[in-house]
Design a binder for these strands. Structure first.
Lengths: 358, 358
DNA sequence: CAAGAACGAAAAATCGATTTATCGATTAGA
DNA sequence: TCTAATCGATAAATCGATTTTTCGTTCTTG
């Protein structure tokens, strides 16, 4: 525990060895827990370690290994609660196993995603947790395949023929949303999302549609998607409402879509749930303190992170066999933003902004 | 560009050397841009690099350096937009200079903060960007001092005698908030915050109080703080309102406080800005799409990140001299959550929850 | 009691790069 | 012409650990 010296160079394993009067190899063995060392020598090593405040240099320690004790994490962004929590969880889990997590943001760019992967490959990371920008078939996964990297794909994925995948069971969650909305009497529902994330969006959409139609064959489901960014989505949504379309509920398949929907509602002076109901995929802390509180699908971040790390380390340790595709169940939080249609006056609209409460 | 081989072992500098018919030292020099190499040999090296798809192993490359090309970033959390953006920015800036960023979350724990720093010290990071849990005088900064680490402190800091500091000019921003609130006629204002972050909170508080009193000497300013977490703050706030205190405006010194205030308002059935006005330190994307939009102080994330990295690399490159303390200006976004007092009926309260719009 | 097994620890090789020292071949200068 | 300086490149040392090989003792055993 002593660290009285403020000198520059840190003690190396050789310093410990000479202080303990043994060889560096012996020190290494003692610290690795090898039992074929005389207890007396082991004690001298521990003493010297203590006295010098010696700690293993992870960089040097990793030099000879083919796989270094580093795990890479690549997320599309860090700004949302979901990915923030995800990185926090992954970091903790990696640390528990003595690994260092190197996190990087692909900033929603597949090109950047590939560059980051190349850099992580340079570091000889033991494994990668990749949340792809688009889906499991992007250039990122290809690069990993091509270079024999071990990894797990999460979030915007369904299943892959090379990597284990873990994601929220968004189809089941969407079905539950459908149950709730149709159950409340909604028969004209708008679903908005980004088509870029193909498979996941399709799963959510189909999960929702199938359940909704099963409950009420005459329900009308409109879909608005945009390819890459959310701004075109905003424009499409604006046009849609301007055309006079009046769904009684909106289900947004992604957080940014929920924000867009809310801002379009506010733009038209519509209030939830009286004028229109809203459910969003992805929960956020603020959603329960606003008026109205926003109904949302909560993704099981901890479970996804923990399952992903389990699968990853299994592969890192050499497990073989066909890749698995895990789906973790979500929770749907029904809040005030959802009501029954026709329970309040549908303010005709118009594009002017108006103060909400007076 | 060629990477036809899917074999396991990556080519080393010796593979390149033998393919080019030169020594490893020559390859190293060519790649380092040393000019005392015969152009013909340089070309052969480049060709071999291309053919083999060779890339330098950053781990091995860093072995002999005292400071490795790694920058550590320690944030109290990753879940908020502010720190999420901060990590994104820092990562980009580190990458630009050929450094790898290792980010870790102290999870609002000073003990963990120190552990992470110890681990980063093990890695011999070139520098650290530390956003301390409490302030610049915590065990984290002490550890860095003790071990001669180079670093920059950001966010919850004012100035330090050992490290450069960069933070938002929250005193000036708070003064501007005071100007706006007092200017609107508020004369009883509640300020809430966490005292743990001593210096910063005091700066914000004093900046606010001084300006408010300068404009209206009879303004009443109540302060509620809690030491560590936000839950006691919630309790205190609840008690405060239950005692019958009726400020006309609340200024929250931190994001979590803004959420707590909103949830207490909703608990009592109060609406912004008619029943009470609200301004929060720290902006978030959702604040502009809710009803009402929440007024907030926007921190200059990019400027803080960029300035922190500039200062850090200056020190990494050996710059000496007294530490600097930078304050980056904030922007105050006045939104609908702020109005004039008495412009709407103050609903007496009561603790029952009530639907907002009807 | 001597040959062989078992044990513990030191010596040496290794990982993949960088840097320093060394060396041979030209070229320059005396 | 002989020595000295210069140039380009290679050999070797280094970084800090781990792992393999080697070696000297001690303990068995025939």
């Amino acid at each position: 525990m002593v660290q009285h010296q403020t000198r520059q160079r840190r003690p190396s394993i050789h310093d410990v060895a000479s202080h303990a009067g043994v060889s560096a190899a012996t020190v290494s063995k003692v610290l690795a827990g090898v039992t074929t060392v005389r207890p007396e020598n082991a004690q001298r090593v521990f003493d010297a370690v203590e006295r010098l405040g010696y700690r293993v240099d992870p960089l040097a320690s990793d030099m000879r290994r083919a796989k270094r004790r580093i795990i890479g994490a690549i997320m599309p962004e860090f700004e949302s609660e979901f990915f923030g929590q995800m990185v926090t969880e992954l970091e903790g889990l990696a640390e528990q196993r003595g690994y260092t997590l190197v996190a990087a943001s692909s900033r929603e760019s597949e090109a950047r995603e590939k560059e980051i992967l190349a850099r992580m490959h340079d570091w000889r990371v033991a494994g990668v947790v990749l949340a792809p920008v688009r889906n499991e078939h992007g250039p990122g996964a290809d690069f990993m395949k091509m270079n024999g990297m071990t990894g797990v794909l999460i979030d915007r994925v369904l299943s892959d023929d090379a990597f284990d995948t873990v994601s929220a069971d968004s189809a089941a969650a969407s079905a539950e949303v459908a149950r709730m909305l149709v159950g409340k009497g909604h028969s004209h529902i708008l679903v908005i999302g980004l088509a870029e994330q193909a498979a996941t969006v399709r799963a959510r959409l189909e999960g929702f549609r199938a359940q909704a139609l099963a409950l009420n064959p005459s329900v009308r489901i409109d879909v608005i998607t945009s390819e890459v960014s959310v701004e075109p989505l905003r424009t499409s949504l604006r046009d849609y409402f301007a055309r006079g379309e009046r769904p009684t509920a909106v289900y947004s398949l992604l957080l940014k879509g929920t924000l867009v929907a809310l801002s379009e509602f506010r733009r038209r002076g519509w209030h939830c749930p009286n004028d229109i109901s809203l459910v969003g995929f992805d929960d956020a802390e603020w959603m329960q303190v606003t008026w109205p509180a926003i109904a949302a699908v909560v993704q099981p971040v901890r479970q996804i992170a923990s399952e992903a790390m389990n699968l990853l380390f299994r592969r890192v340790e050499g497990a073989v066999g066909p890749p698995t595709a895990r789906l973790e169940p979500c929770q749907v939080l029904m809040r005030e933003s959802v009501g029954s249609p026709g329970s309040g006056p549908h303010s005709g609209g118009g594009d002017r902004q108006q103060p909400p409460l007076s």
